[in-house]
Simulated scan of single mutants.
Amino acid sequence: MKPVEIYTQPLCGFCTAAIRLLSSKGAQITEHDVAATPGKRAEMTQRANGGRTTPQIFVGDTHVGGCDDLFALERTGKLDALLQE
């Protein structure tokens, strides 16, 4: 399974929902708290091609986008394939 990186911030319901879905798939998640770690928000924005909202989700080298994008992949049946190596 590909590694997953997710940029989050405290009290973000979308972040929690995304992590819950990814965890239910057995994904190994590395979480980056943009509020607690200096420079992480700038790193996230650069990696996400200007994306400034949390969460920003990466599966391997693929930028998925935010929570809505993640759930859209799940609805279309494409998330499982993306997570597989």
Rank of each mutant, 00 (worst) to 15 (best):
A35K: 15
P38C: 03
T54D: 12
V59K: 07
C12A: 06
L70D: 00
G13R: 15
L21N: 00
G77L: 13
L22N: 02
A81P: 13
M44K: 08
H32M: 02
T8N: 11
G50W: 10
N49E: 13
A72W: 02
E74M: 05
H32C: 02
K78G: 06
I19H: 07
D68M: 05
S24V: 12
A72K: 14
G51A: 01
A72I: 07
D69R: 07
T62G: 07
L21H: 04
D80E: 11
G39W: 06
K25F: 00
R75E: 10
T37P: 14
E31Q: 15
T16G: 12
L22Y: 03
N49W: 08
E85Q: 13
A81Q: 11
R75T: 12
Q46G: 01
E31G: 01
S24L: 14
R47L: 01
R41K: 14
R52H: 01
R20D: 08
K78Y: 00
G39K: 02
V64G: 04
G13V: 14
G50Q: 06
G65D: 03
E31H: 06
G51H: 11
Q28G: 03
L21R: 10
G60T: 09
T8W: 09
A36E: 15
N49C: 04
N49M: 11
P3A: 00
A48N: 11
R52M: 07
S23T: 14
G50H: 06
P3K: 15
T45N: 12
H32A: 03
V34Y: 04
E5R: 14
L83S: 04
K25A: 00
F71L: 11
C15E: 03
L83R: 08
L83E: 06
C67Y: 04
Y7L: 05
Y7N: 06
G65L: 11
P55C: 03
C12I: 13
D80R: 12
V59F: 02
I6F: 00
T76L: 07
T37V: 12
T8F: 01
T37S: 09
E85L: 14
R47G: 01
R41L: 01
I57D: 00
L70P: 06
G66W: 13
F14G: 03
E74K: 10
A72N: 14
T30R: 13
I29M: 00
G77Y: 09
L79H: 01
P38M: 03
K40S: 00
T37D: 08
F71E: 05
T62A: 05
G50T: 05
Q56E: 12
M44Y: 07
I19T: 08
G66Q: 11
A72L: 09
T37Y: 05
R41M: 01
P55W: 06
D33S: 09
A35F: 12
D69Q: 10
T62I: 13
G50C: 04
